[in-house]
Design a protein around this nucleic acid. Structure first.
Lengths: 179, 179
DNA sequence: CGGTTTTATTCATCTACATGAATGCGGGGG
DNA sequence: CCCCCGCATTCATGTAGATGAATAAAACCG
């Protein structure tokens, strides 16, 4: 994410903000033109459905950006909440990061690749949700984000995978007993 | 997609190719550095799982781009197939569209917004897969892509929604009888 | 510390959707 | 033009994962 740091640190509107575990950075239903770059800690974005259940779109630990892309890009009030899982330091930056003049062509190319990488991750996520059972999605999560499980409660991993905490618990006990 | 047309039509490597229904543009397991811009017709990208079942990542009708983003960006052989659902005219363009010098800053900004819009669509797709039952996902599909159902067989809509053709058929008959 | 509140686990039951098979139709290619 | 293979539909049965409830351990906080 070096490209990104370069961009952000040259952006005059940059400010660093601290948040405590549990703090809410973005409320569902609110229009906000911000994205959040995580310097330290963990944020997550999620919805709460009509039955009160949480479904997590993404986690963001050090070096990642999080925001409600659908809301930002289509100028609608968003459905996502963003909150703080671990005490965090965050750079809040504006939707229109590209309106500044001090960005080189290199910066744009790097940023474009960053966006494509994120799209590639989403492509994989969609394909897994379409075709793989929960146990495989869990195994992939562990392989891809090996450091996160130590920092995130099980129920949130379940809410990210698209299953209940009970189902995840069952999967884990089966894995444990088969080793 | 006017931005994109502008970019593509100034790209010296552009060629237009015709495909027939059923033609395969990209094979799973093959590394390819191409994306496809659809001028006419419909393409789709999909995987075939270990049981031989198809799962569709995306459709692309007039004005859309399709490719295996995960493969392109992470330089891995891809898992996606891309084939032709309707006779099509396609502009095949290179991964490194941004290596050309004739692109203005405006072009980059527009292209960035295009990427964000696609990410917003993927965000919505993931959230629906995580939280909404098949009947709601189908209703959303009809609302969002009202012209596609006339041009695409049911079984492919089912493979896009993440259910079987039988389940989609049942959903449709329930909707029909409740009107 | 101690009490309350979250979290993980287990089990019994339920449901959305998958699977497999049979039927009829519809449209495209020879 | 006709044949036939792909497609949609229906039904009977199977299953992954949901739901709800009970328990215990762990985290939180005054």
């Amino acid at each position: 994410m070096e490209e990104l740091k370069h961009i952000l640190e040259n952006d005059p509107s940059v400010k660093i903000t601290s948040f405590k575990k549990g703090d809410i950075l973005l409320q569902s239903g609110v229009s906000s033109a911000h994205r959040f770059f995580v310097k330290k800690g963990i944020l997550r974005s999620f919805i709460i459905d009509s039955k009160g259940k949480e479904h997590i779109f993404s986690f963001a630990s050090e070096g990642w950006i999080i925001g409600d892309v659908e809301s930002l890009e289509f100028d609608r009030p968003g459905e996502l909440f963003i909150d703080c899982i671990e005490d965090a330091e965050v750079i809040i930056f504006d939707k229109e990061i590209f309106s500044f003049d001090n960005l080189s062509k290199e910066d744009f190319i790097n940023y474009t690749h960053l966006l494509y990488r994120r799209m590639g991750i989403l492509q994989r996520r969609v394909m897994m949700l379409l075709s793989a059972p929960a146990v495989d999605r869990y195994a992939y999560f562990l392989k891809t984000y090996p450091e996160l499980p130590n920092r995130i409660p099980q129920r949130m991993i379940a809410a990210f995978l698209g299953i209940t905490p009970q189902a995840l618990s069952t999967i884990r006990s089966k894995i444990a007993s088969s080793e």
